[in-house]
Nucleic acid binder design. Structure first.
Lengths: 181, 181
DNA sequence: ACAGGCATGTAAATAGTTACATGATTCG
DNA sequence: CGAATCATGTAACTATTTACATGCCTGT
């Protein structure tokens, strides 16, 4: 039985304690969204599938009259998750519209390419600031991995913003020094 | 008329000279694939649409008996491309299965998390080597942007490989120095 | 009372991959 | 001749987003 990556995101998110679909979405948005997003349109149908496959188990946990189901991982689910975690990672996709625009910017004026770089830098600085804010507020000691991947996000965005700045300077720099040592 | 990002990739690829669908695919694979991929299943239908919209123009250019159509950008196509290039970039998605696995690796032994980091590092080193090979062979002087984004790919993969190495060391390091100044 | 957040779900559309089918050309 | 590459395209599938619909609960 082949599971999608989204299925494993869900299994991972319920592996420590039972969560509702809504909570899973919030957790994803607050942690892994920068390298793996998930929408309600995926989460709810996937929870149903995982439940039918016996990898998670739904338990009614209403808040007053508002119905609510939290899902807990089962033995089989934990085995599936661990099996997946042990396989070497494969998919790596990056879609960066900024780099794509830059690639084709030879048809524009240099100043316009520089503007794209500035927009990219601003965006990366914003994301970096958001991630730093998350880093500052958390105080969990037991699991080293979430802060580790958070750090990756911060470093990556810092590097990227810096790259944009350097490339902008290079673009707007005087052309004469091409072959200098 | 809204165009997909893939449409703009195609417009960009035919903006300097007329190309066939097959050539476009090869060009994409040799340049932007690391941050924006495209498959035949997207390229050929999209070329038809762009042709109907008058943004590219197909010209028969057979090789012997083998039929072949190259597409050239039109005035309208160039305007559409430039308009898009001038808008600030928005979409940025990254899907890194490795970071996702790492995030959930608290349920495994530290050595297993380290193994994921090693696999990630190896992969990034490989991609970096490929990009460096591309960088070494090219000798175009006129357009500064392709080498610029290539450099981004090289630097990114170098940073990422280095991060993996550092995190692996941190994971396997002795725990005792938690609160040192 | 009302806004905002909690909560669940579906429908429709778009995006994208994979696999397949077909056939010509070139190089060894 | 056979393999690799050039070349075009489609069908089926999977993934994913967006928008919508519904309704309760909490704080002001």
């Amino acid at each position: 039985m082949e599971l999608s990556s989204t299925a494993y995101v869900i299994l991972g998110m319920v592996s420590r304690e039972a969560r509702s679909g809504y909570e899973i979405k919030a957790l994803v948005d607050g942690s892994v969204r920068f390298f793996w997003a998930a929408s309600y349109g995926q989460i709810y149908p996937e929870l149903k599938k995982l439940s039918e496959a016996g990898l998670v188990e739904g338990v009614d946990a209403p808040t007053g009259d508002r119905k609510r189901t939290v899902y807990a991982i089962t033995e089989a689910g934990e085995e599936a998750l661990k099996g997946w975690l042990r396989e070497p990672p494969e998919t790596l996709e990056m879609r960066e519209e900024g780099l794509l625009k830059l690639f084709f910017s030879g048809v524009l004026e240099p100043e316009e390419g520089a503007a794209t770089l500035r927009a990219m830098r601003r965006q990366r600085e914003q994301i970096g600031a958001q991630l730093r804010a998350i880093e500052a507020e958390k105080g969990e000691i037991d699991d080293p991995y979430p802060p580790m991947v958070l750090r990756a996000g911060i470093e990556f965005n810092t590097w990227f913003a810096d790259w944009c700045e350097r490339m902008e300077a290079q673009l707007l720099a005087p052309q004469h020094e091409r072959g200098s040592s």
